[in-house]
Write a protein that binds this DNA or RNA. Structure first.
Lengths: 248, 248
DNA sequence: TATATTATTGCAACAAACCGCAAAAACACG
DNA sequence: CGTGTTTTTGCGGTTTGTTGCAATAATATA
């Protein structure tokens, strides 16, 4: 393999995963550590990546990625980590959009092998960084507000699908009213997603608990897992606990 | 064997395999290393390949997709600006993916009113920033390499659609061979996109001119507009000019 | 702080590139 | 045809590029 090809390979890995480990590259490319280190040094000199102890990081990861802009990011990371526990190899997963789901994708283990259907282009792009994940983007009208596809075409495609697990964020959840939403189209969308999945996990920061909006998506019993940043036995969650809903 | 024949042979190998090793060519062509090196040097001077230590690489071997440092960004901005001239209010436009198309979207005038179909999630997200643009994302399998949706589902949806204009990037264009590509699925995809549009514009930086890859998408006559960063009457473009193709 | 992992540096072996030169082939032209 | 010129090619010697190794320094992790 030519040096240039190695460099291209490394850059591809970097842009795919936002980071590379020296040790991984040694195995993948079957060359000595020294060679990889020199490659990383050269690419770093060209300003194509950030060299760090143990490997290298994507340049865009630091510059363009403004972590601070995501609201309540710390909470969302906790939620995301809990949610990854639900995913096992071979699973078929359906996801919605939103920053919480996006965070969930970033927290997935590197080698997870699964099939993901999603209505969120951003989630699709993030999922594509995993070698062993097959990504199917469900197409349709694209919503400027929620950054997901919606509309009849999406509903139709969802109807043909049966996923093991559906992961969705929510803007409101209430012990009696269940999941609710403000927009008709998003409401329809979520209903269709629920119907297409054997189980459903709702990812939701605690400040969205105990809120009911105009349009009802489903009763609380239709939800299999409720994932918040709170402890399992936090008092805010007791009213959600029942035979159907597992609190994580 | 004549020099010209050797050069043709080398270019065939390059376009077939994306790479050649000096040592391989020495054996295949039964000439000295120096001769091969000189051949590669000359072909490199003509801009037909990239010479590297140990051999040479195809010019289109810029497979990697890096969002941080877009390759030849200045050229792509020039191309993008030219392309915006093709869009008028009320148009139905179909776009592919790639950094050039993404740049095109960023250059669109703020209040343009049009309908865009796209196979690229990133393009969809960017288009969503325009208030008066309706965005329809065509869904399907998501390609990790090219960051667009592809496969049967995409083809099927494209078949139901007739756009006024199709905008696509390309990795290779040649006056006799037309549009060509390396991957079967992308090839099929581009064919379907062409069939779904009344007119087609190809956005393409000049270094991808005069390159032919393995799989043919369409003859040069099927293209309505060819947009490069070069001046309209640049000599590199004369061979592309004919009744059908407009050079911008 | 102790221990393991990763970086750095100089070095040697090898491969490839470069340079000048000369032989051979192709070409131009009277 | 012959002769001078240009182009092409291969060879030897030299320089540069690439890679892996070993010893040492720096850094992470518990």
């Amino acid at each position: 393999m030519l040096k240039k090809e190695r460099h291209d390979f490394i850059m591809r890995q970097i842009n795919l995963h936002n980071r590379v480990l020296t040790s991984d590259l040694v195995q993948l490319l079957n060359v000595s550590e020294d060679t990889i280190r020199r490659d990383l040094q050269e690419l770093s000199d060209e300003g194509l990546l950030f060299k760090v102890h143990g490997g290298a990081l994507s340049k865009s990861y630091h510059s363009s990625f403004d972590d601070s802009t995501v609201y309540a990011r710390d909470s969302k990371i906790i939620i995301a980590k809990k949610a990854t526990g639900l995913i096992t190899d071979g699973m078929v997963v359906l996801t919605g959009g939103g920053t919480t789901i996006l965070e969930f994708v970033k927290q997935l283990p590197q080698n997870i092998a699964a099939t993901f259907f999603t209505i969120s282009p951003l989630v699709a792009v993030e999922l594509a960084k995993y070698d062993n994940i097959e990504v199917i983007l469900i197409g349709g009208l694209f919503s400027k507000n929620s950054q997901v596809t919606y509309g009849g075409q999406v509903i139709t495609q969802l109807a043909e699908l049966k996923a093991d697990l559906c992961l969705m964020g929510t803007s409101a959840i209430h012990p009696e009213e269940g999941l609710t939403d403000t927009y008709w189209e998003i409401n329809q969308l979520k209903k269709a997603m629920l119907a297409s999945s054997k189980k459903t996990a709702v990812l939701c920061i605690s400040e969205k608990l105990d809120i009911a909006l105009r349009l009802r998506v489903c009763p609380i019993e239709s939800i299999s897992y409720l994932i918040t940043e709170l402890d399992q036995d936090h008092e805010s969650l007791t009213r959600y606990q029942n035979r159907e809903v597992h609190i994580l």
